[in-house]
């Protein structure tokens, strides 16, 4: 277990693609894709196991040219925890505040964007996008490889509905 004050960004089983001001990460283990905004990405990239939360706040501050609080870093780490993007889960220290209160307080005080990690489940196979068609009533609904396929088959037109 790493020291929770020195978080480590996960590096295995991830496919990473950087775009301007954002980082896209596909987690092979969970089949989820994540988009980190600039703030979340800066925090994540700074989690090397050697920097404390306070060090990370200073580093993100120097990258953005703005004052960055430990609380803002904790908010990012909270989301990185939830999305399994850290090597080990870190106990988040928001000093007794709820996440909502912390968001409100930091949001008002911060000159940089709040950290955001947006996530979506990736398709599990190529058939997930197959049109929902049918050849008999036996291959509609859950028997059809297409997602959200209705249970009834109209064999006149070859569509489930």
């Amino acid at each position: 277990m790493n020291n929770p004050q020195y978080p480590v960004a996960r590096s295995t089983n991830l496919v990473i693609q950087e775009v301007p001001n954002e980082v896209l990460i596909f987690d092979i283990d969970t089949n989820k894709a994540h988009c980190l905004n600039r703030t979340a990405a800066l925090v994540w990239k700074s989690c090397d196991g050697k920097r404390s939360v306070n060090d990370i706040a200073k580093l993100v501050g120097s990258e953005t040219g703005e004052q960055v609080s430990d609380d803002l870093v904790w908010l990012a780490i909270d989301q990185l925890n939830e999305t399994n993007l850290l090597e080990d889960q870190v106990v988040v220290d928001l000093k007794g505040q709820s996440r909502r209160d912390a968001l409100k307080k930091i949001g008002l005080a911060s000159m940089i964007a709040l950290p955001i990690v947006a996530s979506l489940a990736a398709p599990q196979n190529a058939l997930a996008n197959l049109s929902c068609g049918c050849t008999t009533s036996a291959n509609c609904g859950t028997n059809n490889p297409a997602q959200n396929c209705p249970a009834t088959c109209d064999t006149d037109i070859g569509l489930c509905r």
Binding site: Q17, V19, N21
Partner: peptide, 11 residues
């Protein structure tokens, strides 16, 4: 954003 758009499109 570009990242959000890619996330939505990769599905």
């Amino acid at each position: 954003t570009t990242g959000e758009g890619i996330l939505e499109t990769l599905v």
